[in-house]
Amino acid sequence: MVNLVIVSHSARLAEGVKELAGSMIDGDVTIIAVGGIAEGDDYRLGTDPMRIHAALEEVWSEAGVLLLVDLGSAVLSATLALDFLTPEQRATCLISNAPLVEGAVIAALEAGLGHSLEEVNQAAEATAQFEKIPRSLNSY
């Protein structure tokens, strides 16, 4: 199964997305939330490439890992984390272009169905076009 790593500037947001996406899983999918920069017992806003790297090491499998990220430097941090992996691990990890919440929810479902990393990512990224209020259908 493809596993997921949720990366957010906010520790609480990452955990919340993990909780929501976790409710969609029917299968043996692992989701790890990585949010914020550790500061004492708490977290401040930011992304930590080393913790993302540790999460990738923890959930890596041959089926692959999809990273879902929030904004801005989360991408830079995730990219750097990937560069700390071995080439073999790196080959089956992907940073998704999907919106964080919609992407994580759909990715969790797709991963649980046993789909491939590419399929999971495609479904997650397709949520960017998802209309919350469809204009194509008759309204009430």
């Binding site: 500037h9 930011g46 750097l80």
Partner: peptide, 14 residues
């Protein structure tokens, strides 16, 4: 890398 938090972390890091 682990302490800055913004884009500057990875950039000064590399």
């Amino acid at each position: 890398i682990s302490s800055i938090g913004g884009a500057a972390g990875p950039l000064y890091g590399v």
